[in-house]
């Protein structure tokens, strides 16, 4: 982590605040706090705040707030991050049916049984480092080293929404149907992204929060899917210690 953030221009309507140059939970925690602090401050003229692994992209209207003034205000926030009261991160439970060719492949490659893969995959709390790639796609940290598996040799043209997969040392969930090369080890009936829902991104799915996969049976999957279709499904979200 840098002692002081770097403030970089990204054109005439955005700045990048870079807090470090590595992927670490410590830097990401500060990114989360900085993001929340900016949102709490409600800086006039600021548009999007996009938190990523180790930096924030902040878009602004230069006709409302001058660049230098914006950076000055951001620096003040940066200096006072410790003192700003922020909510604790949340843990979102994602019910997951572990099943599929990928599950067998991941087991074989790593010399594990399918049960062990499920156990290892569903145990950790995964930090949501950031969202990107497609709406609702989470970049997670915390996959057990034993589960790291190379991508598919030939990417699939259609991976259904809700698929849970592993690619190298990453794990994640496909929020919308898209092509991809991940080893698919399961699926969730929960929709991480639904543009027609009042809250399009699933509750709690924000960078700085955590995800935990909860193994479910095929029957439970079907039952939840029905509730999800009716728009009544409430995902389990709880606050955890920072």
């Amino acid at each position: 982590m840098y002692n002081q953030a770097r403030y970089l221009d990204a054109g005439d309507k955005a700045v990048v605040v870079e807090l470090g140059n590595q992927i670490s939970t410590e830097i990401n925690r500060k990114i989360r706090n900085f993001t929340l602090a900016i949102e709490k401050e409600g800086l006039e003229g600021v548009g999007e705040v996009v938190p990523t692994y180790r930096s924030l992209l902040i878009t602004y209207d230069p006709l409302t707030i001058e660049r230098d003034l914006l950076i000055e205000k951001l620096k003040i926030l940066e200096e006072n991050l410790e003192e700003i009261e922020l909510p604790q991160p949340k843990l979102v439970k994602i019910p997951t049916l572990y099943k599929g060719e990928g599950l067998e492949y991941v087991s074989q490659v790593n010399g594990l049984t399918a049960e062990e893969v499920v156990e290892l995959h569903s145990k950790p709390k995964y930090l949501i480092y950031m969202l990107g790639f497609t709406p609702g796609f989470v970049y997670l940290g915390g996959l057990a080293e034993k589960l790291a598996t190379p991508r598919l040799q030939e990417p699939l043209t259609k991976i259904p929404a809700g698929s849970v997969g592993i690619a190298d040392n990453q794990t994640g969930i496909y929020p919308i149907e898209s092509p991809g090369g991940w080893q698919l080890i399961g699926k969730t009936p929960v929709k991480l992204f639904d543009p027609d829902r009042k809250q399009p991104i699933l509750e709690g799915i924000e960078s700085g929060n955590y995800i935990k996969f909860e193994p479910i049976t095929a029957e439970e999957y079907e039952a939840i899917a029905v509730v999800v279709e009716d728009g009544d499904y409430q995902v389990e979200v709880k606050q955890i210690d920072n």
Binding site: A10, K13, Q22, T52, S55, L57, T59, G132, F133, T134
Partner: peptide, 27 residues
């Protein structure tokens, strides 16, 4: 390390050929 992409950003992948990012760009 992946970060946010502003409108009009000019990315240069490993082949050294620039790409200007427009409205439908990834975030």
């Amino acid at each position: 390390i992946s970060d946010g992409i502003a409108s009009g950003a000019i990315q240069v992948p490993g082949d050294g050929q620039p790409i200007i990012m427009l409205a439908d760009r990834q975030t």
